[in-house]
Simulated assay, not measured.
Amino acid sequence: MPNVEELRSITRIVESLIARTDSGPFREPVDWKGMGLWDYPDVVHELMDLGTVLSKLSSSKYDCADDVADDVRTVFNNCMTYNTEGSDFYSLGESYLLRFESMFEKLAMYGTSDRGSRVKSERGGAAGGLGQGPPNLEQKKTFAENLFKVNGDDLGHVVQVLDQKDPKALEAVAATSDDNEPNVEVNIDKIKAEVFWELDGYLKKSMARDGGLKRKR
């Protein structure tokens, strides 16, 4: 049975996000055709927007607040996946995601003990990384494959981000005379979840931009 009170509470959260003056990019589906963003469907695989979430709530399409939260996170994660880190749109998506997580955590604290424990567990560890938990083996495998395929500049960006945010995930390796790439190795198992997902989105965007071609060795 749907938890009516929880759904009513998270509806108010979604409505409050939509009511913000700067929420325009998230209120309706991204008009990627109209804006000429032809690579958008290749980079973003699950389209979602706050208007759609609210419509699904009104139509009783959700059984619990956690399902709503997953869709809301998708809205902002899509924004961060498609846009370059540090850009205005990326920063806007990140700020909205953090705002939503704060509001959702407060809702969980007053909900059932099971869900309250679940949210605390997710946010207490690495899973607090912007709404996504630790990657599974298949996701790590895909990450590793994409890491091998991107060009040298994109690989350098990955190394730079890890050096700044998660240096423990970088391991020194012996450089060869004909190797101009950074003489470090990325240990995917050591990357913190929030950094993993940030770089995962970056790699996918790079792959879509370059047509999935392998970098020259």
Results as ranks from 00 to 15, higher is better:
M1R: 08
N3E: 10
N3I: 08
E5K: 12
S9Q: 09
T11Y: 02
A19L: 08
T21A: 14
T21D: 11
T21L: 02
D31A: 11
W32H: 10
K33M: 03
D39N: 08
D42T: 05
D42W: 09
V43N: 10
M48Y: 15
G51A: 03
D66K: 04
D66L: 09
D67Y: 01
V75I: 09
F76Q: 09
N77V: 07
N78A: 11
C79E: 07
N83S: 04
T84R: 09
S87A: 00
G93W: 01
S95D: 10
F104W: 10
K106A: 10
L107V: 01
L107N: 00
A108I: 00
G111P: 00
T112E: 12
R118A: 04
G125K: 15
A127K: 08
G129I: 05
G131M: 05
G131C: 10
G131N: 12
Q139W: 01
K140D: 03
K141A: 15
T142L: 15
E145H: 02
E145V: 07
N151E: 04
V161M: 07
L162Q: 07
D166W: 13
P167V: 09
K168Q: 11
A175S: 15
S177A: 11
D179F: 07
N180F: 11
E181C: 12
E185A: 13
D189I: 00
I191V: 15
A193C: 14
E194F: 05
F196E: 10
W197K: 04
D200M: 10
L203C: 02
D210G: 13
G211K: 08
K214M: 11
